[in-house]
Design a protein around this nucleic acid. Structure first.
Length: 501
RNA sequence: GGCUCCAUCGUCUAGUGGUUAGGACACUGGGUUUUCAGUCCAGUAACCGGGGUUCGAAUCCCCGUGGAGCUACCA
């Protein structure tokens, strides 16, 4: 049987790190098995729709390099086509721009309502499911009652005792949900691909709602119908689904369908060990993208959260991950999100980039509008070893555009006096002045200055660096002079001499 | 409360009955160096607790404890 996996995101918010990890795992598994990676949108909760969620997810996956084979694969530009109206309307307009590909569509659940209805009616006919007319208030009471008695919260099957005639009569008049009748004895067992055998007593299971009173299916129902109809062979999803998996299996059994292989991945926790949420800062993939983390770094970092190759290798490109991925090496314990580790990965990948490419990547992040392409390249060259994200490119380079005010004492290296400072600056000025503006390169600066500095470099280089930057900390004087260019460098050194004299 | 899952340095993890418990991030110190980075070298640091099983347990079993998840006409 062909390996077919899917992610089934719900468009209720921006695509976050946990979603990326699930997507990556499914993608890697599909590639490894030469299978198909499907994206299906589960928008059955009409009250929580977030219009931008689908485009955000698609953009995040595209940015990460995770290619989609089937299902919701792309979107036409949403710019100018979607005027702001109420959010549900906006969602529906964006939905129309979604590109779907494959033979098992539609791949958006709100477009499959008749399918779920049909299958639910089949279960109704077979008496495996039943309509329930109870009000939310009554259900709430039943639930509280169970809790008060320390019993598992379960529906009391009040509506199951209705006569056929009563049932028909009510169905015509009152809104109702359709529930699955779960067996009240025995246990449901499945073999989780990452956790091994998991079992649950059937009598602990609540009769799950299959179809809501608004006619939409619940997740539990639509996920089973679609995974079956779309021939999904392996379900790899978050561990929050473990407790409801037995319900899903009972639905498969109700239709006499074979159950896919199921594996539950760990969730990503915050540093305190709690659920990763907006409160912990940035968790959406688009936030990381906007902050200038490289996709290579985010992928590498996320791949190693909950999986590792069991070797000491830590740096992986997406292609290497495809090659080395092994589903058996998934961990069971939930990892925590460590920002510092992500930053290290990002810095690492930034240092690997060719300067021209890094300059192109950094360009949108530069705070100053720099027209001189050459200057951008210089700045990026200097910043490359110092930064962790693309937006860091602006860090500590204010001096390039405007010399900050600084006290003249800052020019002194150790116990130097004013006279020594002036002498040192004049020497530097002479050397710099000799280099033609057209040959004002890093090496042409470094060579003569280092030669002149001799063994004890502080007396020459420290005053020069401060004269150029006005800062206690900065890149090397050669790099600073190079960025500033000959004229500006000369002017700043002269100014420092005047200041000291 | 009920149910389910999980448990090695601060963090990500290696380890599947016998290891000086290994690597990486972070941290600390040192080398390189004019400062900041980078880079190189070194160091601090962990088997949640208690019982078993065994000649021997991080590893197998049980009981605790702790954490997470589910307990919705949300997914």
């Amino acid at each position: 049987m062909k390996t077919r996996v899917r992610i089934a995101p719900s468009p209720t918010g921006l695509f976050h790190l946990g979603g990326l990890r699930t997507a990556l795992t499914n993608y890697l598994f599909a590639r490894k098995e030469r299978g198909v990676f499907v994206v299906r949108v589960e928008d059955t909760d009409q009250s929580r729709l977030v219009p931008e969620a689908i485009p955000d997810m698609l953009e995040s996956l595209r940015w990460s390099g995770i290619g989609i084979d089937e299902g919701v694969t792309g979107i036409q530009s949403t710019k100018h086509k979607v005027q702001s109206t109420n959010s549900k309307e906006r969602y529906n307009r964006i939905k129309k721009l979604v590109i779907q590909k494959g033979n098992f569509g539609p791949y958006i659940q709100s477009e499959r309502l008749e399918i779920y209805r049909r299958y639910a009616e089949e279960l109704l006919r077979k008496k495996i499911a039943y309509p329930c007319f109870c009000t939310p208030e009554r259900l709430d009471k039943v639930r509280k009652n169970c809790q008060a008695k320390d019993l598992p919260p379960k529906y009391d099957r009040h509506c199951l005792s209705l006569s056929e005639a009563e049932m028909k009569n009510k169905m015509a008049k009152i809104p109702y949900v359709i529930r699955l009748k779960v067996p009240n004895s025995g246990k449901t067992v499945f073999n989780d691909l990452v956790r091994g055998r998991i079992e649950m007593e059937n009598k602990l299971l609540d009769d799950p709602i299959l179809i809501k009173s608004d006619g939409f299916p619940t997740y539990h129902f639509s996920v089973v119908i679609d995974d079956h109809l779309m021939r999904i062979s392996h379900i790899l999803r978050g561990e929050e689904w473990i407790p409801s998996t037995p319900k899903h299996i009972l639905i498969y059994q109700a239709f006499d369908w074979s159950v896919p292989v199921i594996g539950h991945l760990t969730n990503i926790l915050n540093m305190k060990g709690g659920k990763l949420s907006k409160r912990d800062g940035d968790v959406s993939v688009s936030d990381f993208r906007q902050k200038g983390y490289l996709p290579e770094a985010v992928i590498n970092f996320v791949a190693l959260l909950g999986w590792n190759p069991k070797t000491t290798k830590e740096i992986f490109t997406l292609a290497e991950l495809v090659r080395e991925f092994d589903i058996k090496k998934l961990n069971k314990a939930a990892p925590r999100f460590d920002q510092q580790r992500l930053e290290w990965f990002s810095g690492h990948y930034i240092r690997q980039k060719p300067v021209a490419e890094l300059a192109r990547l950094c360009a949108p992040y530069l705070e100053k509008n720099i027209k001189d392409k050459n200057l951008v390249k210089k700045i990026v060259t200097v910043q490359q070893p110092r930064i962790h994200t693309l937006s860091d490119v602006n860090r500590e380079i204010e001096f390039v555009f405007k010399l900050p005010q600084y006290p003249k004492q800052l020019l002194r290296w150790k116990d130097m006096g004013d006279r020594a400072v002036i002498e040192s600056l004049r020497r530097a000025l002479k050397i710099i002045g000799k280099i033609p503006a057209s040959k004002f390169t890093l090496t042409n600066l470094e060579k003569p200055l280092m030669a002149a500095a001799g063994a004890d470099r502080g007396p020459l280089l420290w005053p020069l660096r401060v004269a150029l930057t006005g800062q206690k900390q900065s890149p090397s004087p050669f790099e600073c002079a190079w960025m500033l260019g000959k004229n500006e460098s000369v002017e700043r050194v002269k100014a420092a001499i005047r200041k000291t004299a």
